[in-house]
Amino acid sequence: MLQEKELVKQKAKELLLDLLSIYTPSKSEANATKFFEKISKDLNLKLEILPDSNSFILGEGDILLASHVDTVYGYIEPKIENELIYGRGAVDAKGPLISMIIATWLLNEKGIKVRVSGLADEESTSIGAKELIAKNYNFKYIIVGEPSNATDIVVEYRGSIQLDIMCEGTPEHSSSAKNNLIVDISKKIIEVYKQPENYDKPSIVPTIIRAGESYNVTPAKLYLHLDIRYAINNKREDLIKEITDKFPECNLKIVDETPPVKVSINNPVVKSLARALLKQNIKPRLVKKAGTSDMNILQRITTNIATYGPGNSMLEHTTQEKISLDEIYIGVKTYMLAIEELWQKI
């Protein structure tokens, strides 16, 4: 057992430091092509590259371990100190991804066929997950790899709507202007704004506003972007209507949308992950998350899906991203034990 743990930690250290040294913000995933080609050979896992999104899939089989290779912007020089690995994406989600790659390698060595994906663009509009859907990939079970403190199983995510609002006004000299698009729309923003409070309350948050071209002319055009988040129990149509009614003179366009997701705790993926943790004397905790992940998209392939991974979720997107080799080991072990159970159901 100790030998296995040391082997996993050594491999994790080697692979994670290597992957962290490659800067892969969303849409730059091709930078990691050589890394995946190398591990495909070294770990004897067939490599497939999805051409539209530059997503990577290793291995074969009907079970998918789905993490992502892109990170948020801002390179952080990787380093290791006392078995703690630092770097951009160490937590979100290169730590979980490396855990999944190692689990896939060890399971395939045992004859258990499983695939692992380093999907593209999860931090943006999930074009990697969407390419899996568009190309009719089929999996019986999917575990999504995101940091969940190595103990939590995510069974629910909120959905999001990205809404552009384009408004037009009459430009006037600012010294005598009676109408002002900035003032009019600002009042409406304050009325429609819903501050994020808790999981079950929808939020409507303005994130971009642009208007005006001259110091002394009121604007002819205004662009506003709203980021809307809502739980599965909220009514999407009511939210859209509320905003549409507030901006009747403007053009509204949904530029991206991710549906909310909620899975049953009786689903075999949740069950197998919980059992895998219990077998390691770790009490599993079921959680719902306020953000979105590729699970929201991949639920269209199968509802036998859940999210789990090593890494402190509070460190996601921060400059303090770090993960311990012990956390990664728990992640590898949990993925392996869960898949060994799921494999028997196929």
Partner: peptide, 8 residues
């Protein structure tokens, strides 16, 4: 009860 967490 199912707990709440933030992020992805």
């Amino acid at each position: 009860q199912i707990g709440e967490d933030w992020g992805e």
